[in-house]
Amino acid sequence: MAAAAAAGAGPEMVRGQVFDVGPRYTNLSYIGEGAYGMVCSAYDNVNKVRVAIKKISPFEHQTYCQRTLREIKILLRFRHENIIGINDIIRAPTIEQMKDVYIVQDLMETDLYKLLKTQHLSNDHICYFLYQILRGLKYIHSANVLHRDLKPSNLLLNTTCDLKICDFGLARVADPDHDHTGFLTEYVATRWYRAPEIMLNSKGYTKSIDIWSVGCILAEMLSNRPIFPGKHYLDQLNHILGILGSPSQEDLNCIINLKARNYLLSLPHKNKVPWNRLFPNADSKALDLLDKMLTFNPHKRIEVEQALAHPYLEQYYDPSDEPIAEAPFKFDMELDDLPKEKLKELIFEETARFQPGYRS
């Protein structure tokens, strides 16, 4: 834990890192770190609560700039109880001085990944967590956004079992017609939660990839272990087919990539493993919904509104309290091709509203 900075004593240090967030945020305490930044909790002297502050230093890398800009653009436009918001952003007053960006968010005690390492969940908890994931996802999908990296560590939890989806750095506007060349190379989302079509096709992607990830998360809540822990690309596919069985001819016809289709045709026939054999203690309604989410063919996979209306979630289902976005989200430009200098300018502009004396 960093010592509390005395008023006016300059930035606090946390594990050798400068955290320049005073005077409003003090009493910093280390939480963890990701690929390009550290997260601390801090005391907000204005709202009198502890908050989470993520320090991001992305400006050396085009990919990190892209992810940072995506996350900020999306989260500043989203407003939903099951999606983490941005409360404040701290950065230098000029673009030349801006080396880091500090993002202030609600402090959540833990995440689903940490929880599943230590606790076996009751059916009631599984049901409530799944409902909140789908409630947040309904809003995301209504904005025409794909999260693309749903996994237990991106689901934040607090002691009252509130759940918030975080990390929109890989999110995209849904565009089933656009052929994202190089899709697989830039697709760094965790393999275990990846839909089979991501490994088999490169053309376009749809909201059904997020539903697949939610199915993987439900299976993990039922058993405290990942359902498809593939060691590499082909191993991942083999794990999936080992449980779902061989795809039907109709399902194979959806695979545009001939090499991928021929690979699947070359494999020995596998039978589907019954879900109640894998999860003998699970609620039968939970397994019915799991089956509809972990469907090989993305066109037959359940959609988020149908999933919310499934009998497993009937005690929570309330369409009048499951809000959607006001308007579909649009990125003005494809960020993939922009140089990091341009992305830095866009991050600077996007964060201006939090600067003292800002006038829109």
Rank of each mutant, 00 (worst) to 15 (best):
A325M: 15
V21A: 07
L200K: 02
Q132Y: 08
I84V: 10
A92P: 15
C216E: 01
V21H: 02
L294D: 03
I56F: 00
P328W: 09
M13V: 03
V49E: 00
P58C: 14
K292Y: 09
Q306C: 14
G10S: 11
N45D: 08
F296G: 06
E322V: 04
V104I: 03
Y233R: 03
I56L: 08
V101A: 03
Y30E: 10
L218K: 03
G16Y: 10
Y128H: 13
A35F: 10
N262S: 07
T118D: 11
Y25A: 10
T190F: 04
E326M: 12
V304W: 11
L290M: 07
H147K: 03
I74C: 07
S41E: 13
I198Y: 06
T295I: 10
L121E: 04
F279Q: 09
G85L: 14
E345R: 13
L218E: 02
V273M: 06
V49G: 15
S266M: 12
H80L: 00
K270I: 11
V14L: 03
V214L: 04
L335R: 11
H180E: 03
G245V: 01
C65G: 12
C216A: 06
A352L: 13
H180C: 06
V14I: 04
H141P: 01
R277H: 12
I227W: 03
L75C: 13
T94V: 09
L200W: 13
Y131I: 12
S246C: 01
L115G: 14
N154A: 03
S29H: 14
E220V: 01
K300T: 08
I95Y: 11
S248C: 09
D321P: 15
P311N: 14
T94Y: 13
E96L: 14
Y205P: 04
K207R: 03
D210Q: 02
I133E: 06
P229C: 09
V18K: 09
V273Y: 12
Q306T: 13
L234Y: 07
I90M: 15
L290H: 03
F59G: 13
A282Q: 14
K48R: 04
Q315A: 11
N45Q: 10
R359G: 00
A7K: 15
Y36I: 05
A5Q: 05
K231L: 11
R301E: 02
G37V: 00
N238I: 00
D210P: 05
D44T: 13
R148N: 04
I256G: 12
N257M: 06
N281F: 11
D88T: 14
E326N: 14
L237P: 02
R77D: 11
E322R: 14
P274R: 10
V104K: 06
K203R: 03
L234N: 10
A6S: 04
K340I: 11
Y113R: 05
E12R: 05
N87R: 14
V14F: 02
L222A: 03
W192H: 03
P247V: 13
L222D: 02
R91G: 14
D177C: 12
K48M: 01
T351L: 09
V104F: 02
I227K: 07
N82L: 07
T63R: 05
K272C: 07
A171C: 12
N276A: 09
L267G: 09
A260M: 12
N123H: 10
M293R: 03
L157Q: 01
A5V: 05
P274W: 11
L28R: 08
R225I: 12
A171Y: 06
L134V: 06
L343Q: 00
A195S: 01
L265Q: 01
Y43Q: 14
D177Y: 01
K342S: 14
V304N: 13
G22C: 10
I140W: 02
E71S: 06
R135K: 11
L338F: 14
H310F: 12
S202R: 01
E186C: 07
V49M: 04
Q62D: 04
F78S: 05
D44L: 09
D177K: 13
F183L: 01
K164G: 04
G136P: 12
N238V: 10
K330P: 12
I84R: 06
I74W: 03
I103C: 06
L294Q: 01
I90D: 14
F78H: 06
G16M: 13
Y193F: 01
S122A: 12
E303P: 15
I217S: 03
N45G: 09
D337A: 03
G204Q: 07
L200M: 00
F129T: 13
A143C: 09
L184E: 01
E345K: 01
I324Q: 13
K340V: 13
L237S: 03
E341N: 14
R359W: 00
L130D: 03
S29D: 12
G34F: 05
T351I: 09
N297W: 08
P323F: 15
A35T: 00
D124Y: 00
F348S: 07
S360N: 09
D106W: 14
G8S: 09
N27V: 12
E220H: 04
H61I: 10
I140G: 07
E303K: 02
G182I: 03
P152T: 02
N297L: 07
Y131P: 11
S320W: 12
H232L: 00
Q105C: 11
I255V: 11
I72F: 03
Y316G: 14
M108V: 10
L146F: 14
R79W: 10
A143R: 09
N201G: 04
D321W: 13
N158D: 05
C161A: 10
Y113S: 11
K55H: 10
P328Y: 06
E197S: 02
I126P: 06
A4T: 05
D235C: 11
G357E: 08
L267S: 08
L343H: 07
K203T: 06
K231Y: 09
D111Q: 05
A2R: 11
G245A: 03
R15I: 09
L75H: 15
G32R: 05
N87M: 12
P311T: 01
N281K: 05
L278D: 07
G182W: 00
P298C: 11
C161K: 05
E305H: 15
Y25M: 12
